[in-house]
Amino acid sequence: MKMNTNTLKLIKYQLRDVMRSRWVLFYLAFFILITDALFRFGGSGDRVILSLMNVVLLVIPLVSIMLGTMYLYNSREYTELMLSQPVKRIQMFAALFSGLVLPLAATVSVGIALPFIWNGVLLSHIGALGYLLATAVALTIIFSALAFAIGLLTEDKIKGLGLAVVLWLFFAVIYDGLILLVIYMFSHYPLQQPVLIMSMLNPLDLARIALLIQFEASTLMGFTGAVFQRFFGSMSGQIAIVLVMVAWISIPLGWGARRFIRKDF
């Protein structure tokens, strides 16, 4: 019981701290502006969701991993201070992580959902929007967890930030380049299964495919697309997506927590 109240108290403090800094507001304004602009230029809710898909896949991982890394370095002194109090390390770690992820996820959800409300299409698109937001939140958590892993890997701020950029670049660009390379090198072999597994191992690819299946079926209905569609569109496919995402959250976070607990501050 005491542990929970401690954690909650810490989270509360963290949230107040985050709210006082302006980046959350900027992030919120960014999503409201871009969603509303898409409504103004594009029109229908379906098209807005399709365009938002690109924004979600591009912006959220980048912002989460950069902000997360910086946030961890910036709260170093505060962490040291707190740890000199009767606070368990795991509590502190949980509070730090929640203090980052909660405002980020809330900001994204509210920022995207608000324009849907005032354009009056929230209820008619609640399913698709829910799916998009769930993916956005999952990406936020995954890339925040990766940010924590980086922040705890190296003490050097510049090195950490550099590593964050490289990691994002790897998941967003380089990994797909590798997949394409494999596709070309082994083009004489049946590749659907291996490529499917490869793309499932990258959280960004996984989120992209999960959204594609929902929102752009016409392209994927081609012959090969149908194979992917059948797998990811099925119940077991959806479960696999969730499992891989959970793994991508728990592995870096677990590693980070272990390191945080043993770290010599």
Partner: peptide, 9 residues
């Protein structure tokens, strides 16, 4: 390679 659709790469 359809699986790479909408990838930044």
């Amino acid at each position: 390679s359809l699986i790479l659709h909408r990838s930044l790469f």
